[in-house]
Write a protein that binds this DNA or RNA. Sequence first.
DNA 1: GATAGCAGTTTCCATTTGGTTACTGGAAAA
DNA 2: TTTTCCAGTAACCAAATGGAAACTGCTATC
Lengths: 128, 128
Amino acid sequence: MVLKLRKKVDALPGCPMSKCMDLIGGCWTPEVLWSLSEGSRRFSELRRDNPFISAKVMTSRLRDLEQRGVLTRRVIPTSPPTVEYELTGVGKELLPAIRSIVDVGTRLLLRDRENELSGKKGDKQSLL
Amino acid sequence: MVLKLRKKVDALPGCPMSKCMDLIGGCWTPEVLWSLSEGSRRFSELRRDNPFISAKVMTSRLRDLEQRGVLTRRVIPTSPPTVEYELTGVGKELLPAIRSIVDVGTRLLLRDRENELSGKKGDKQSLL
DNA sequence: GATAGCAGTTTCCATTTGGTTACTGGAAAA
DNA sequence: TTTTCCAGTAACCAAATGGAAACTGCTATC
């Protein structure tokens, strides 16, 4: 994934897009939210869900999201320790946006496949 | 806004989210798409729509989007020259995702305001 | 005894990135 | 005559960021 997050820049007050992007924007953030959309998950599960996210970034993203009130982190004192991540109410409110992104992506992939089948590769007309 | 774009990282083939984020991800990209959602706009109009986007980034983002087939750039040879940007079919397919992001942001802002009015500032319960 | 798994943390690195400022050249308006 | 507008471009900078690899302590399993 291709999103980065800048901590120095705050969301523009009163701007809806800014408000939402402040929470879902950030490298790999949409993926993490997507993994949590079905329910709580543990750190290692999240890592297996998204093998391209390094441990460092995963940790960093989870901490960010926790601090912003998007998810909760619950440590279960077993040995080895278990940690459960779960979306908060705010986190769940983000899901329609995430789903919409996935839907659009699905449609675009379909479009690609159709264009390939009909030999329109590189056909500018197919873009319009 | 708080998104960056990395050109070296390609979209994961066959991944819907990656496919979509590859197009809408990037600093200020959602804002630009939003500005173009109602129809074509000129460079200076886009700049006025989004006074926080520097000229350099605006140009860079528009070029990226053009290259990815999200929008078209049409130069009208007047003096001073006029340039019109307009979403392609692919670009228009992105709009549901953008709208969803704005909707979610709007709902979150409303939620904030309600919590402020009812004096729930800092009330953890209001997050769940 | 060695390894694997849990949930990270730490260090080091290169790269990317966006911001800022200055500049273009022609035309129209003040 | 100077300024403004159009649509950018070029150069320089510092900050932020993600990746890779090594390491932690503890337990259960092979």
